[in-house]
Every structure is written in C-alpha cells, then in structure tokens.
Design a protein around this nucleic acid. Structure first.
Length: 420
DNA sequence: TCTGGGGTCCTAGGACCC
DNA sequence: TCTGGGGTCCTAGGACCC
C-alpha cells in the first residue's frame, strides 16, 4: 500500500475546552450547565449546549435559553497551561504535530506505527493519557487526510474516537451535513439548502458549475474537491502571520472624539508593540468601526514606508476612523473599534538608525522615513522599560479605554497566542 | 437586553501600466 | 480616428475559522 493512502492523520480536539477546564478546577461545576464569559458566551459546557447555548451568544440570550446557567469568569492562565500539557502528550507520540489553536492539533503518526501500534491504537492511548494525566476529555478523528480527520473528530464528539478507513470514506461522508466541511458556514449552508443540497453526498453529486454559481469560483472548487475527497494539505508548521490587529468592544457608547482617540491610542499601542516584538512593520492600515446592530464599515490606507511606530500608526488610524465617521454622520453611537496592519515586511535598516543620528532640519509629517525612525527609537526604549517593569510602567497619554475593559487583559493575551 | 478577540481568504470594481 | 487584452495594486465588504 502506498504511504499516502494509509489513514495516519489524527485530529485531536479537546471538548468544550474552556468549560471543561472550569469543571476540572471546580468540582461543584461538574455535570452542570455552565458558560465561560461575561457579556458574551466564550464557551459552553455540553450540559449548557443541550439547551441551545452556544459560543458567541449574548449572555442575556443564553440565560433565556437556560435559566439555570452558571456564568464563570475565565481562568485564562490555566487554559494556556493545560493546553500546553496536552500538546506535550501529543508530542510524545510523534514530532509531526501541527497545533491549530489552543485546544486542537493535527498529528501524522505514519512514522510512529512501529513504536506505538496502528493509528486507532495510538488514538486510544492518547485519549487515555490526556484523561489520566490532565483530566480533560479529548476527541480524536483518524483518517487519510486532514479534512477527513477533522470531520471525523467532530463526529466523534463528545469524548470519542472515529476511525475512517480509506475504503469507507465515501460512505462515511455521504450522509453528513455540508456544514461539517471546513469553510461552509451558516450562509453557505443556507444557500446550498435553498438549492436542495444538505448532505456532503448531495454536494459531491452536484455539477461543478452549479457549485461555482452557488458559492463562488474559489470556494466552489475547494468544496467540490473536499466533497470528492481530495485534500492536498500536509501537516507542518504554521505560516508566519500576514496581519496583526486588535479590537475593542465598547458596549454602546456615544461616538465622542475623546472615546475614539483614547481607544485607538490603546489599540495602536498594542498592535505596534506586537509588530516590533515580532520584528515586523506593515504597509496597509485598516480601521473598522461598528455601529449598533452589528453594522460595520472599514477604511484602509497603504503607505510607502512600512509602519511599526506607535504614534505613526495612531495618526494613520485616527485619520481613517475620522473618514469612516464622516461618511456616516447619521451614526451617533459606536459598539466597536478595530485596528489591523497587513502587508507585513521585515523593517529595513533605516528604521534602526539611532535617535541621535537621524536627519534633522525640515519638519516631517507622519509616515515620513525619519519621523518613523525617530519614533521607533523612542518605542524601543518604551518596549525595554515595559519588558522589565511591566506593560503599565510607561506609555503615552492616559488611556481612558483601559480603565473600563470589556474583557480581561488575560483573555487578550491568550487570544493573541491562540485565536479561540 | 443586541453579541469577544485574533485571524485568513475571496470577490468585485476601479486605477494604472504596457 | 479612439481602440484591445492582460496584469497588478488598491479599497471595501463579507464569510468563515478557532
């Protein structure tokens, strides 16, 4: 049998991760419907899910569905620690582990069969160890490709294993809902349902041209390939990020210049600091403004010199936000502001010029080479002080926003390491 | 009572160049 | 007289993922 035709790909996915950790840490929460979060549900236990409670749901709606729901503030440091412990266990079976998020990873065990037995045996052993050593439920899908393994782990939940033998793939997929395909969400699902397509089998039988019509050319082709069981993705290290951003939900606040200025100051400080820490700068800055009712607009601008200085980024972002608001004068309230930097490059030597050697004389506008270089020097000093004495030890003007955070800083730290 | 934070990818129209 | 096709970049919006 050829190497590529064996079912040696595992997808390991911790069940209701945040909620399971809370139930592990506090026995009083076990077997009860709980939600992690505050204004919004970040994660729901399976007991809560049986009432219809789901991640991303506003808290009031979750309480409506499940009156006995217990809300728990997250223990974000523990999520990181326990997630790492599980990844260490996975890594003890094979070095070919691709971590996808804090609670999920692909493994290729093709080279581990001699040592640990067939893939299904390895999956059972992994689950047993994670349960015994960490105390968390883990589901695993085993198949020939990443996509199939991922679908299998979803089918295996909660707390199970599903193995898809190569000769049984077609039969396995045929009856499953199209929503299990990676990239098919609620909108696509509804669009397909309107065309009478609900299962992956029906999708596979549909003509390619019809799929392109329904889903667009790129997704149509991708979905057809997946439904037909072609998946070229290999297990390997994640690519470096192509953008970096930060956002802040504001509740429902009057769109005052002071609110916009202070919030953007906070967000740009975060983003620019992360860019510098990663030794990156970006050519395109995007600002998103969200109004009540989840209506949002974006404004973006590309600049010649890649940006990573806090003040330069703040000036550009402020201008973009002002343009967006000027185009929507009827809006008097905001619910969110976001800043993102993309088209990332490694900063050039120009930016590393020491402060005292910068060209002087003519006044310099934002984005000009030497202004950004000078500011970068200042930023590096700030970064160094913060590295020693903490993020709050030094900074720019007082940040009003940070006095009333909607989410704990620890959650931002976690989300920035692992989107979840 | 109206919803977190951090990302990727795709589409479509327009500007601009050769 | 005022026409063609291809490529690239930019911007805005949106679906989707964890």
């Amino acid at each position: 049998m050829a190497f590529a035709t064996a079912a040696t790909v595992l997808h390991a996915d911790l069940d209701a991760f945040y909620a399971s950790v809370e139930q592990l840490l506090d026995p009083a929460l076990r077997r009860r419907p709980i939600a992690v979060g505050g204004g919004v549900v970040l994660a729901a236990s399976y007991e809560a899910r049986s009432y219809g409670v789901a991640a991303g749901m506003p808290a009031w709606r979750a309480r409506q569905l499940c009156p006995g729901l217990a809300f728990v503030a997250g223990h974000f440091g523990d999520y990181q620690r326990l997630g790492d412990e599980v990844m260490d266990i996975l890594g003890s079976f094979t070095p070919f582990v691709e971590r996808v998020s804090i609670d999920e990873a692909f493994l290729d065990v093709a080279g581990a069969l001699r040592l640990f037995g067939p893939p299904a045996t390895i999956a059972v052993a992994i689950r047993r160890r994670v349960r015994a050593e960490v105390g968390l439920p883990l589901s695993i899908g085993v198949a020939r490709t990443k996509h199939l393994a991922k679908v299998a782990s979803q089918v295996a939940k909660p707390d199970g294993v599903v193995v898809v033998a190569p000769e049984a793939e077609h039969e396995f997929l045929a009856g499953l809902p199209v929503g299990l395909i990676w990239g098919v969400g609620p909108v696509m699902q509804a669009r397909l349902a309107a065309a009478g397509i609900r299962t992956i089998g029906e999708l596979a039988a549909a003509p390619g041209a019809a799929l392109d019509q329904l889903l667009g050319r790129a997704l149509g082709g991708k979905v057809a390939a997946l439904a037909a069981n072609v998946d070229p993705r290999q297990i390997g290290p994640a690519r470096p990020a192509s953008s970096m951003g930060a956002q802040a939900a504001l509740g429902r606040r009057r769109a005052t210049p002071e609110l916009v200025r202070s919030t953007l100051g906070y967000l740009c400080d975060r983003v620019a600091g992360r860019l510098r820490a990663a030794q990156r700068a970006g050519r395109t800055v995007t600002v998103r403004v969200r109004f009540p009712g989840m209506r949002s607009v974006t404004r973006s601008a590309s600049v010649a010199m890649p940006v990573c200085a806090t003040l330069t980024l703040t000036e550009i972002a402020t201008g973009l936000a002002a343009a967006a608001l000027a185009d929507h004068r009827g809006e008097h309230e905001l619910t969110l502001l976001a800043v993102s930097v993309s088209h990332l490059v490694v900063p050039t030597m120009q930016l590393e010029l020491p402060l005292e050697r910068r060209p002087s004389g003519r006044p310099q506008g934002p984005g000009s080479r030497s202004t950004d270089a000078a500011r970068w020097g200042l930023d590096r000093s700030v970064d160094a002080v913060r590295a020693r004495f903490g993020p709050a030890s030094v900074g720019y003007a007082a940040v009003v926003f940070s006095e009333d955070p909607r989410v704990p800083e620890a959650f931002r730290e976690l989300a920035q390491r692992h989107p979840s």
